[in-house]
Design a protein around this nucleic acid. Sequence first.
RNA 1: GGCGUGGUACCCAAGUGGCUUAAGGGAGCAGUCUGCAAAACUGCCAUUCAUCAGUUCGAAUCUGAUCCACGCCUCCA
Length: 467
Amino acid sequence: MSVYLFNTLTRSKEEFIPIENGKAKIYCCGPTVYNYQHIGNLRTFLFEDILKRVLMYNGFEVTHVMNITDVGHLVSDEDEGDDKMELGASREGKTVWEIAEYYTDVFKKDLQRLNILFPDVFCKATDYINEQISMIKCLEEKGFTYKTSDGIYYDTSKFPDYGKLAKLDLEGLRAGERVEFSDEKKNPSDFSVWKFSPKDKKRQMEWDSPWGVGFPGWHIECSAMSTKFLGNHFDIHCGGIDHIPVHHTNEIAQTEACTGEKFVNYWLHGEFLNMGDVKMSKSSGDFLTLQKLIEMKYDPMHYRYFLLSAHYSTKLKFTFEALDAAKSGYDRLLTNVLKIKNSVSEIKTTENTFKEHEKFKAFINDDLNIPRGLAQLQQVISSELSNEEKLFLIYEFDKILGFGFKDAEEKPKDDIDIPSEIITLVENRIEAKKNKDYKRADEIRNELKEKGFEVIDKKDGYEIKRL
RNA sequence: GGCGUGGUACCCAAGUGGCUUAAGGGAGCAGUCUGCAAAACUGCCAUUCAUCAGUUCGAAUCUGAUCCACGCCUCCA
């Protein structure tokens, strides 16, 4: 069965045909580690996780590379403003290196909590400064760069297909009122590949280069590292949809100018998660993280389920109402799965499972239609299939959905400490129930409620819940 | 100003010419079960897809117009 993917380059769904038979080489733009990743950032990483799982499921040997941007880049694509890393460092009174390490660790932890498979390679921009310098040299030799007072710039007018990915209207860009650019830039779309350190102050991160002490431009790291690990020409490059007009456009310009080869065959982009009314912006400082959701008693799987209910290429509006719906939906699903797991000792494949399995594969291979796959899981669970058949399908589907059903177990009861006063009341209620004194039992139930507790009767005892 | 999306039930969200008189989840309602409650389970829940016109044997899906909402071009995934 073939995998079909929507390619931003052609704006159409195409069959995935790898460069090297049976192998898929993927590069994903990773985080800039100057702050926590917000839940919107994580949506993109989850989309990439699904892509990888689907390719692996189809038998491709996947090589997945993700960069960690730990170099300070300026807060504007127009090469102006402050350095994000240094800003983060001064905000927290740490060195930029400490900032980078801390937020990288948090990022990885978030991925783990969401059951996102790790890339084969995490590459830090600061570990590959030489590779970046080599690429700039290459561009310089081929005449694609020029020097200004603050750095080395890429001359986009020298690259014939510049802006192809984004269908950029360069004339419109020039006429656009909002694009300001320094007098020294030859074209509004030109961008820096190397920035000189400011003369008046010492940066925490800076390196020697043939052009003077400074630091690399934002886009060059991805060009340098992706080609280092995956070759000049590889299969898939992904990232958030916001990367289309600038970052990815510039990556293509740099890399193809330097190598003279086609850079990437398939460009895939994940849509944004929009907040109900708050914009999901990092600069505002007020943004939602996975950690915050966990503190609000959501399980990372609730968030995963929420994200999987929408296709990666459509905008998804985040609201707590929607997250609560996902929470209920996931909890019920998990309960059902556990019930099935506990009722059978083995899985079974039959003609029925074959049919369902084929259907599922068709969905996920059709540009990663996970919402459809998820719907099918629900249908299978409430179908007439035997539990052995269901369990087979649950495990298969879960290889893509990634809820970890194989390892899932009954949730341990919240070991919140219950005051002894409450326990006494509950014991009294049990006693009353034994004596068929249901009036008294209900009184106690109400009393507990007033004190903020709820008792749930179980076959062999009770469970106390804090309200 | 440029580029690009989308408007599907109470909410989230699939579907993009006939397989669909529109998946799935949540909420709600009714019922089964339980002394009650909770959980679980069963059933019900859009003849209709922003509006108008058109193409077609056939449209939520294509075309045009209109209205509305949103994203990016500033840092963003």
